[in-house]
């Protein structure tokens, strides 16, 4: 099962729910990896939805595991791409040429959900009007508060910033605008005193 139930946390930490059909004029899905399962589940509840939908899917490390199933869903417009940044210009173009009434569905890793949410907010969709369902990896998109560099798919705490090399502890404080959690130097007061990294939620 690709669902993970996050423990209760502080109020800036995003929360997720199951995708559900909602009234609208058009439908756009952005998903990565196991996020495909959320689309497949929704499609089985509402058969007519997919014929009106545009799906942007990034398999990540799941290879062809879900692509065949998606192709069978009779999706009006299905795009399967290698990475979020490769898909981004397509997504942005789709958003700016959309009309009010568009329903946006996001599913998969927190990194994918956060980045697509950010692009949608820039296009004018309130974040509270976007549905998102977490599936798959619990790896996070982290920003180093010191050098501002982003490290993707962080699943240990503390981790080493892939840009400046500082050891950072993983906070639950989250910025929608940056689509990232905050990483803060763990040995700022006692340089060198760095605890052994542990897996998140273990």
């Amino acid at each position: 099962m690709s669902n993970f139930s996050f423990p209760e946390s502080i109020k800036s930490r995003p929360t997720y729910a199951r995708l559900e059909p909602r009234a609208g004029k058009s439908y756009l899905f952005v998903a990565d990896a196991e996020g495909a399962e959320a689309i497949i589940d929704l499609a089985s509840n509402d058969k007519s939805l997919m014929s009106k939908s545009h799906v942007i899917y990034i398999p990540k490390n799941t290879g062809k595991k879900y692509t065949l199933q998606l192709e069978k869903l009779n999706i009006n417009q299905l795009y399967i791409g290698p990475s979020y940044s490769a898909a981004q210009s397509r997504l942005r173009h789709t958003l700016v040429s959309s009309h009010m009434g568009l329903q946006l569905y996001l599913s998969g890793t927190e990194g994918l959900i956060g980045q697509a949410q950010r692009d949608a907010m820039v296009a004018g969709i309130p974040h509270t009007a976007i549905q998102s369902e977490h599936r798959g990896s619990i790896g996070r998109r982290m920003q180093c508060v010191h050098c501002k560099g982003i490290t993707e798919d962080v699943d240990i705490d503390p981790y080493v910033c892939s840009h400046c090399g500082l050891s950072l502890f993983v906070r639950d404080h989250y910025s929608r605008r940056l689509a990232a959690f905050q990483g803060v130097c763990i040995d700022a007061e006692e340089p060198g005193n760095i605890p052994t990294a542990v897996e998140l939620y273990k």
Binding site: M100, L102, Q103, I125, P126, A129
Partner: peptide
């Protein structure tokens, strides 16, 4: 507006 999928926030 709600029936056409407009979010409450707008």
């Amino acid at each position: 507006a709600v029936n056409l999928g407009w979010p409450n926030e707008v």
